[in-house]
């Protein structure tokens, strides 16, 4: 176990979230509560459709909640305008997606520099910084490659570089290994844990891939729109 300071980075309290209206209304979150701490890698696991992605979306403010409260680094998202949340996200959150979502017409270094460009940093400086991070991810020499010229694992490493380049305090990963084979998934998680985890940072990984559960510091188990338990990996025996 890491000796990370026990300090709350993200606090989710009794969040209710529904999609659609009337007949087609689906309750995706039915009063979910969760805490994520600085310096930890928190996994959110559970069967498909239980609300994991929805929970991630409300944590990073890309979705509004119907009820309940979300607090990220002490900021109550409900009290912030869309613009303020967008700005907050740009500064504080790094994203890693299942489908990588690298822009196909940008090279690795250009993709990885996007969060810095969004902040208004000059291209030269942003790309120099991105190249350094790519090098750290073992992608030295592939900076000028386009996503289609890279393997799935390499693409995900570009995505991790992009998520880390602006030094955000919260890293959000949705099924980061689902598009990768087992071995590549393991290596990607090793890299993620090694490079992303820091005492002042919180990494939240949504997954239903039991082979990567052991990378977690804590595991939040979801079922039908609720967090039903938080476990240490050694105590968590997934069925």
């Amino acid at each position: 176990m890491s000796a990370a300071p026990v300090e709350t980075a993200v606090r989710v309290n009794g969040v209710v979230k529904s999609y659609g209206r009337g007949e087609t209304r689906t309750l995706a979150l039915k009063g979910a509560s969760l805490e994520a701490r600085f310096g930890e890698l928190l996994m959110i696991v559970g069967p498909s459709g239980c609300g994991k992605t929805t929970l991630l979306s409300v944590i990073c403010g890309t979705l509004d909640v119907d009820e309940g409260a979300i607090e990220v680094f002490g900021h109550d998202l409900a009290g912030m305008s869309t613009g303020a949340i967008t700005k907050f996200r740009g500064e504080n959150v790094g994203f890693i997606f299942q489908q990588f979502n690298l822009i196909p017409t940008l090279t690795a270094v250009e993709n990885a520099s996007v969060p810095l460009l969004l902040r208004g940093e000059p291209t030269r400086r942003a790309e120099a910084r991105a190249a350094a991070v790519l090098g750290h991810m073992g992608l030295g020499g592939r900076e000028r490659s386009y996503p289609r010229e890279l393997s799935g694992g390499q693409q995900q490493r570009v995505a991790i570089s992009r998520a880390l380049v602006h030094e955000p305090r919260l890293i959000i990963c949705d099924e980061p290994t689902a598009s990768l084979d087992a071995a590549t998934g393991q290596r990607t998680m090793e890299l993620l844990k090694e490079s992303a985890l820091r005492p002042d940072r919180c990494v939240i990984v949504v997954t239903h891939d039991s082979r990567i559960f052991h990378f977690a510091d804590r595991i939040a188990e979801m079922e039908d729109g609720r967090v039903v338990g938080v476990h240490l990996p050694k105590d968590f025996h997934h069925v």
Partner: peptide, 15 residues
């Protein structure tokens, strides 16, 4: 065709 990347930019903080 670029919608999902534009959405990614939006998520990453593009106003």
């Amino acid at each position: 065709d670029n919608l999902r990347y534009l959405a990614a930019l939006k998520a990453m903080g593009a106003r």
